[in-house]
């Protein structure tokens, strides 16, 4: 049976738990099959979710570099973020 689709922010946290490190480019590429075509699947919205997850301590910035004139942040999940995965639906654990 196919997994149900997670709310986007929760999916970003789950995604973080499957990667050692990631940028928003990785999320946009790897989650396209699940959220493509949705108005929320944008760089702007993605950045809001990663900023929020970073502010509450679930992911942290491990590297920063310049991409054109923009800042590209590489993140990784924290122990606190990993702990919150216990609230995932059973099919996602």
């Amino acid at each position: 049976m196919a997994k149900s689709i997670l709310p986007f922010r929760f999916r970003v946290l789950h995604y973080a738990s499957t990667k050692d490190e990631f940028t928003y480019h990785d999320i946009l590429k790897d989650l396209e099959s699940e959220y493509a075509g949705e108005g929320q699947f944008t760089e702007k919205k993605m950045t809001l979710h990663t900023d929020s997850l970073m502010a509450v301590g679930m992911i942290e910035a491990v590297k920063t570099e310049l991409e054109g004139d923009h800042l590209l942040i590489t993140y990784k999940i924290t122990d606190y973020g990993r702990d919150r995965l216990k609230y995932l639906p059973a099919e996602w654990k």
Binding site: S4, I5, L6, P7, F8, F10, Q40, Y87, L88, P89
Partner: peptide
Amino acid sequence: EIPRALKTKP
């Protein structure tokens, strides 16, 4: 996102 959210504990 609404039905998706309602299917999760948060």
